[in-house]
């Protein structure tokens, strides 16, 4: 005999996967006009695509970050689905409460609708820095919710400060290059998604995606939503202001991140990793670095250090694809 909750969860219709960009374009928008993000904003695009993929039976939670502040400034907000702000520390905890409350209401027969897809949409700071404790606890308790980390590799809301996801060598307002520290940021970033997978081995689904590969990203959001339990999507969301790019370079930059092996597109299901971008060879990282002003101060030895870090990452992940020589 199934419980009422199980019936409701089963009643939830799985979001079908998209075959191509045309099907994605046909979908209704749930992140609409009424925000003041920068021209070419990667995080705004990642939000729009996530909302399109998520559909109407969705609730979004936005911990403090640029996708909270820049979206809520005109006495209106761009979400056509329920949305709430959480503190930057605790989105994972708030989503736990919402998910558990829906379960309780369904169990008691007080809610007759289908179980919603409940998303956290947190920046890299709200995911991998100050927000990591609550994010981890939500995954550990396996609440039926989706944690999306939109990773623009800095605290852009407060003026481009370094985060745990900011790459080695990047200028930020808290990591200025100078004679004492010529490479600006000296630390290498966390490997957030793989770290969370390692920390929560029972997690059913996790993925890394990029705004430059929209269908792949939207399908990963849908697969995460279709899971009954906690799921994670880490999306690379380029910030033109913070990275020193023109608006028309944003998608190119996202592609170069993937094509140089700097950012890996992957899925983790049933304990197995699969990689969605499998070229004959990765491009040298210099091609990715040279278009971004935040790396303009770097010298060839710094480029080399970053290339070595990427090579080690490919090796560590068992990706046996060579990197082209410069």
């Amino acid at each position: 005999m199934t419980t009422l909750l199980e019936e409701q969860v089963q009643a939830k219709v799985d979001l079908p996967l998209l075959a191509n960009i045309h099907q994605a374009v046909e979908l209704d928008e749930y992140y609409v006009m009424g925000h003041r993000t920068c021209a070419g904003c990667g995080p705004a695009l990642s939000y729009r695509l996530a909302c399109k993929a998520a559909g109407p039976n969705s609730i979004f939670l936005g911990p403090t970050g640029c996708m909270y502040v820049a979206n809520t400034s005109y006495l209106c907000v761009p979400w056509a689905v329920p949305w709430m702000h959480t503190q930057i520390t605790d989105a994972g905890a708030v989503v736990s409460g919402i998910s558990a409350a829906y379960e309780a209401r369904i169990r008691k027969g007080k809610y007759k609708g289908t179980f919603p897809n409940i998303y956290v949409f947190a920046g890299d700071g709200g995911s991998s820095d100050i927000g990591i404790q609550a994010a981890s606890a939500m995954m550990y308790r396996d609440h039926d919710a989706i944690f999306i980390c939109y990773d623009n590799e800095c605290y852009s809301n407060t003026g481009i400060q370094t985060s745990a996801q900011t790459p080695y060598g990047a200028w930020t307002t808290f990591t200025p290059p100078g004679p004492k520290i010529p490479e600006a940021k000296k630390l290498f970033p966390k490997d957030f998604a793989r770290g969370m997978i390692a920390l929560h081995p029972a997690m059913q689904y996790a993925a890394a995606a990029s705004i430059s590969y929209p269908v792949d990203y939207m399908n990963k959001v849908r697969k995460a939503a279709n899971i009954h339990g906690a799921a994670l999507v880490h999306v690379h969301a380029i910030c033109p202001k913070g990275w020193g790019l023109r608006a028309n370079q944003v998608l190119l930059c996202g592609k170069l991140a993937v094509e140089t092996g700097t950012f890996h597109l992957f899925e983790y299901e049933n304990g197995e990793y699969t990689y969605q971008y499998q070229p004959k060879a990765f491009k040298p990282v210099t091609e990715y670095l040279k278009i971004q002003d935040r790396f303009a101060h770097l010298k060839p030895e710094h480029h080399q250090k970053i290339q070595e870090f990427i090579n080690q990452g490919l090796k560590r992940c068992g990706i046996k694809i060579p990197v082209e020589a410069v």
Partner: peptide
Amino acid sequence: PITPSSEIAE
């Protein structure tokens, strides 16, 4: 970082 104090850290 936190507005409006971030310039001190900067």
